[in-house]
Amino acid sequence: MSLNDDDVAKQIQHMIAFIQQEAVEKVEEIEAKAEEEFNIEKSRLVSQQRAKIIEYYDKKEKQIELQRKIQHSNLANASRLSILKARDDYVQALKEEARQRLSILTQNRSKYICILANLITQGLLILMEPNIMIKCRQDDYGLVQRLIPDAMRRYQQILQIENINTTIDDNNFLADNIAGGIEFYALEGKIKVSNTIETRLEMIFNQMLPEIRQDLFGINQHRKYYD
């Protein structure tokens, strides 16, 4: 049975409608898939950027916290150093006051003679050399001359040594601002023992410094050893 033109036209129209419907459905499918992939990619990018933003601000927060700790530490150190300097200045002022009092003490002739005699004997015992050069203040030159014989006798009695030669340097004297005392030299100046008032004060002060600091400022909580 042959188809007439109308039937052919209808079939063609039907096929065109079918193809168009398929195309529409395909387009919708592609658009739906594209929308889904877009949403997935958008979600991925948003999550990725959100993670980067969170990471960035976490780093910033840590940097700020670190800077805050550093600043706090610097301020604490500066404050601690300021306190330590103030304490040290006070301790040094006490030492200077002690030195001035000792200078006044040496003006008491009877007491100073006793002190100087002991300092001479002690210096001889420290050196234990047969030939010793002694330096003193110019004001003490005559006094040291008078005290040396007795100091040598005491030295010889203690060590049972007879041969010892002492000389007072009459060309080079100790500075006038020294409170008192003497210096000893042996082996042509290679060995020196300073037994001035300032030297003795410095030695005793350094030995007593921990006790002085504790009496003035209390126990140091950060100190581990006291021996």
Rank of each mutant, 00 (worst) to 15 (best):
E25Q: 12
A78C: 04
S103Q: 06
D140F: 02
A117E: 02
L127E: 02
D89M: 04
T166E: 01
A76W: 12
V27D: 06
L119I: 07
N172T: 13
R99P: 01
M208G: 07
V27E: 06
R153K: 15
K26G: 13
Y185P: 01
C136R: 00
A151V: 03
R99Y: 03
T121L: 00
A23T: 13
G218I: 06
I161G: 04
D176E: 10
V193N: 02
F205C: 05
L45T: 11
L124F: 03
K33E: 13
C136Q: 00
I191D: 04
S73I: 08
Q71M: 11
D7H: 12
L75I: 12
K52Q: 15
G123T: 00
I148M: 03
H222A: 12
A186E: 02
A93Y: 09
Y90Q: 09
I204M: 05
N4M: 02
Y225I: 08
Q100W: 07
R223E: 02
E97F: 05
L119E: 08
D89K: 10
N165E: 04
L75C: 10
T167D: 08
L159H: 10
Y141I: 01
G142A: 06
L124S: 00
I19F: 08
E29V: 07
S43D: 09
E96D: 08
Q221W: 08
Q67V: 09
E188Y: 07
E183G: 02
P130W: 02
K95N: 08
L216C: 08
V193I: 14
F184Q: 02
L209M: 10
P210E: 01
I148S: 00
G180K: 01
L84C: 03
T121N: 03
L125P: 02
I148K: 01
K60Q: 15
A34S: 09
A34M: 10
Y155E: 02
K224N: 11
A23I: 09
T106C: 10
A9I: 10
N39E: 10
I132D: 00
Y225D: 07
P210M: 02
L84I: 04
A51D: 15
Q48I: 07
E28R: 14
N131W: 01
K95Q: 13
Q214A: 14
D169Q: 05
N195T: 03
T167Q: 09
V144T: 05
